[in-house]
């Protein structure tokens, strides 16, 4: 039995003194958000030292105020640089370059027993507003990389049996396809930024068993666990699919109506973006070589329907899964397929 002191509160006594570290950790774990944990660690030295026993934290990343491709590119380069540094030297690097916004990485390094991280990124404002948005990312097999990302934005979602107001009477604001497209790219870059940070965290925290990446509206998520996480950690040094200047294979589709017989829903004004990140073989690539197509030729016969079949959809992703399969099977002709290479400043289609 635990022996605790039974002295009554005198009013002057530290009330937490009676609580063993284990209980303090349980309370701190409920704080979850790294920001709150950090503030709390300034209360007293015991709080600060107990904090390091916490096994799970959540991290809410602020959205880049002025969101641009340029900022994402710089961010990606920075994280890539950090990834090349030994994890114990990362704090010194962050300090020496006064990268104050990355100081949380230093704080996080105190957590020696960290088993789970929940990362939440914030999409650029516009996309967050489309409440029906669904997204999903697929990891590549065998190493640390994101293979593809899909965004589905329906203008509306109804039960097929429900009364559906005429489009003209609806009070939804119509968003142009161009705008939707840029919104999707915005989500994609925010996500990639988040993945870069994730790689740094995976590198630094060897006790990790599970990481979850989601956006603040929780419209999709990526979970890495156990062996997959180990595989990511072991292959971080060879991963190159995080370069945000990678060539992309891009499929977009725009549909007026999409019926989902299985779940009984009907979506209207559906916009879909499917992004496949292409291999960038370092040895073949140098900055001046604008003609390098990142293996685009191999993709001419790439079949989106086949690709989607290999995705696993969890219970909460059922609707997205069904929509994708429907689109791939029945609306293939409406696909607009393009490949592009994103360049600094603007997106240039080849």
């Amino acid at each position: 039995m635990k022996k605790q002191e039974n002295n009554k509160a005198t009013g002057l006594e530290d009330n937490f003194n009676r609580l063993p570290d284990r209980l303090l950790v349980s309370i701190f774990t409920k704080l979850a958000d790294l920001k709150f944990l950090c503030r709390c660690s300034i209360v007293c030295k015991r709080f600060a030292s107990t904090m390091s026993l916490i096994q799970s934290v959540s991290l809410i990343l602020p959205s880049s105020e002025a969101f641009s491709f340029e900022s994402t590119r710089n961010e990606c380069k920075l994280f890539q640089k950090i990834l090349c540094i030994k994890s114990e030297e990362i704090p010194a690097y962050i300090r020496s370059k006064s990268l104050e916004k990355l100081n949380f990485i230093i704080f996080l390094q105190k957590f020696k027993k960290l088993e789970s991280i929940y990362l939440e990124f914030t999409c650029p404002q516009k996309i967050a507003n489309s409440s029906f948005l669904l997204w999903k990312a697929k990891c590549g097999s065998g190493r640390a990389e994101i293979e593809s990302l899909v965004c589905l934005i329906p203008g509306s979602v109804h039960k097929m049996t429900e009364y559906q107001p005429d489009e003209k009477q609806g009070n939804q604001v119509y968003t142009s396809e161009d705008c939707q497209f840029h919104n999707c790219l915005g989500l994609c870059w925010s996500f990639m930024e988040c993945i870069h940070l994730l790689c740094v965290l995976i590198k630094c925290h060897h006790s990790l068993k599970c990481v979850t990446v989601t956006n603040s509206e929780k419209q999709g998520k990526l979970v890495l666990k156990d062996e997959q996480l180990v595989m990511w950690r072991n292959s971080l040094h060879i991963g190159n699919r995080f370069d945000c200047e990678l060539p992309l294979y891009l499929v977009t589709a725009s549909l007026k109506v999409l019926n989902l017989p299985l779940s009984g829903y009907r979506m209207k004004r559906v916009f879909l973006v499917f992004i496949k990140f292409l291999e960038l073989a370092r040895e073949d690539y140098d900055d001046d070589d604008d003609d390098y197509d990142g293996g685009l030729d191999d993709l001419e016969d790439w079949d989106i329907e086949e690709a989607i079949k290999t995705w696993d959809f969890e219970e909460e992703e059922k609707l997205l899964g069904e929509a994708l399969k429907e689109i791939a099977a029945k609306h293939y002709k409406q696909f607009f397929i393009d490949h592009m290479r994103l360049r600094s400043g603007s997106d240039s289609s080849e």
């Binding site: 920001k35 300034i42 209360v43 007293c44 709080f47 916004k101």
Partner: peptide
């Protein structure tokens, strides 16, 4: 919670500076 602040003024200033992001 009647917790005594056992950081020195200098120490507290330093952590607060480093943790300004929080």
């Amino acid at each position: 919670f009647n917790v005594e602040n056992d950081f020195s003024v200098v120490e507290e200033k330093a952590v607060r500076k480093e943790f300004a992001w929080a």
